[in-house]
């Protein structure tokens, strides 16, 4: 089991504020890995470091090759980053969002792929011309996920997919992510505030505290971990 994504001692800063203080983690091929932690612990920044939407140092490798050259290069290398707060083009319609998801891929296979992706999100078929901004929050999150799938990513990065959504919708989204993982072998790195649902989906997880990995292990180990349970699972 080799790691698809590896971070070695990654640091990142926003101006004078250091957000990551040497984070190292591994995402094995074909697995779901969760990043947990409190607000401001550096979860979002970890994903942003991978897609290079934040200034960072340290070593980040995808499939053994260093990732560099900005977000465009990361997208081309096969990283699909669904940022916090949905991440759709709200002024464009559903089909246009999906076509943009396939931007890095050559040729005219986008239409066939929309059909493939719509198998996971059937409502997309009837809503092709609807503006993304007029979708409900849950639909926008699903569209963002669908758009990410359009690129046939090697690595899917989800940032707080549960944010502001009803529990039922959150469960549906995680169900789809787990099935994608099980059926298509999709590798996922997910940042989540809701530790319980994230640990249910993930095979392993990292807990960040003030820009560093505080605890890591398999999902089972973390569920048993006294400190994690008290701080993040609340029982």
């Amino acid at each position: 089991m080799s790691a698809l994504l590896e971070l070695h001692d990654v640091e990142a800063r926003y101006g004078p504020v250091q957000a990551l203080r040497g984070v190292s983690l591994e995402v094995p091929e074909g697995e779901i890995v969760a990043v947990l932690g409190a607000n401001g612990a550096g979860k979002t920044t970890t994903l942003r470091a991978v897609s290079e939407t934040v200034r960072r140092s340290g070593r980040i490798e995808l499939g053994g090759k260093p990732l560099r050259g900005g977000p465009e290069a990361a997208a081309k290398a096969g990283v699909a980053h669904v940022p916090e707060g949905r991440g759709t083009f709200t002024e464009l319609d559903v089909t246009e969002n999906l076509r943009l998801g396939a931007y890095t891929r050559r040729g005219r296979r986008a239409d066939a792929d929309i059909e493939r992706v719509a198998a996971w999100f059937p409502w997309i078929r009837e809503r092709g011309t609807q503006r993304a901004g007029t979708l409900s929050g849950g639909e926008q999150q699903m569209l963002a996920l669908a758009r990410a799938l359009m690129s046939r990513p090697r690595l899917l990065m989800l940032d707080e997919p549960s944010l502001g959504l009803a529990p039922l919708v959150v469960r549906e989204i995680f169900r789809i992510v787990r099935e994608l993982n099980a059926q298509e072998g999709l590798t996922v790195l997910v940042v989540e505030q809701d530790a319980r649902i994230a640990l249910d989906a993930a095979s392993s997880a990292y807990v960040l505290e003030v820009g560093k990995v505080a605890v890591s292990g398999s999902a089972g180990e973390l569920r048993e971990n006294e400190a994690v349970r008290r701080s993040y699972l609340g029982y």
Partner: peptide, 22 residues
């Protein structure tokens, strides 16, 4: 595709870069 990418870059540059648009 080019026109779509240009629109995406204009309305939401950060997002456009994430899908690989220069």
């Amino acid at each position: 595709k080019l026109g779509l990418a240009m629109r995406a870059a204009a309305v939401n540059p950060a997002e456009a870069r994430l899908v690989g648009v220069r």
